[in-house]
């Protein structure tokens, strides 16, 4: 099973994602956006600043031929994971609900935050890691990470259980003080079908010397539950 890491001009976390997934025993390869994704069993949209974040973060990539291919893969049930800019792209493409806009603080936030898992992923691999209530410590690095949606969309997202991760305190509690960007409903990650995305960077938290290993847990849980494990 292989994971394609889709690279746009301006992506800059693609090598980190490839390395992290490879270390977990997955067959990961970076794919330039003009090249076909081929027989990828899963696709990761990595972080960065695709097309310089021009117009809006993720907006130009969302209309690229590569994302048209991702859209048809998603329709076939191929797991898609967006990280940071990948999350922004998936929202702009309409594959995930809502939009990501400028942080409440107006600042680029580069910090470690806690996130709480809100729902189990499909697949039922039977792993404890990644079950609801799990709290992970992960780094964020973004200026446009405040998730926003109108009341109707928020109600749908809540009703369908599409919130995957919420920013929280170390004990899993929700409070504005633990919300680094002002996201509505503390949203840090969403899931719709097999399309998932999060603003934090799990690929930067895969070893103790990087500051933590919760990212490896998240990626392992994702890969196993999505059936993309080698």
């Amino acid at each position: 099973m292989s994971v394609a890491v889709l690279v746009f001009p301006g992506s800059n976390c693609d090598r980190d994602a490839e390395r992290a997934l490879t270390e977990l025993g997955l067959k990961a390869r970076r794919v330039w956006h003009r090249d076909p994704l081929g027989d990828a069993d899963a696709v990761v949209l990595p972080g960065g600043f695709s097309y310089g974040d021009y117009l809006r973060s993720g907006a130009l990539a969302a209309h690229s031929p590569a994302i048209a291919e991702v859209r048809s893969l998603a329709k076939r049930g191929v797991p898609i994971l967006g990280i940071c800019n990948g999350f922004q792209i998936l929202c702009e493409a309409g594959l995930l609900p809502g939009a990501l806009t400028v942080n409440r603080s107006r600042q680029f936030r580069c910090t470690w935050e806690h996130v709480r898992v809100e729902r189990a992923l499909p697949g039922g691999y039977g792993e404890d890691a990644g079950k609801p209530g799990t709290v992970w410590s992960l780094p964020i690095a973004h200026r446009e990470g405040r998730w926003w949606a109108d009341a109707e969309t928020r109600a749908t997202v809540a009703g369908e259980g599409e919130v995957w991760l919420r920013y929280c305190g170390p004990d899993g509690s929700l409070a504005d003080a633990y919300n680094p960007n002002g996201s509505l409903d503390h949203v840090a990650g969403l899931v719709r079908g097999r399309v998932m995305a999060l603003m934090p960077h799990p690929e930067r938290a895969t070893d103790a010397w990087l500051g933590g290993t919760d990212g490896a847990q998240l990626l392992t849980a994702w890969a196993h539950r999505m059936g993309a494990a080698s």
């Binding site: 117009l55 809502g98 939009a99 926003w148 969309t153």
Partner: peptide, 9 residues
């Protein structure tokens, strides 16, 4: 409607 504005926001 398709590209220049994001109808979500």
């Amino acid at each position: 409607g398709r590209v220049l504005a994001n109808p979500v926001m």
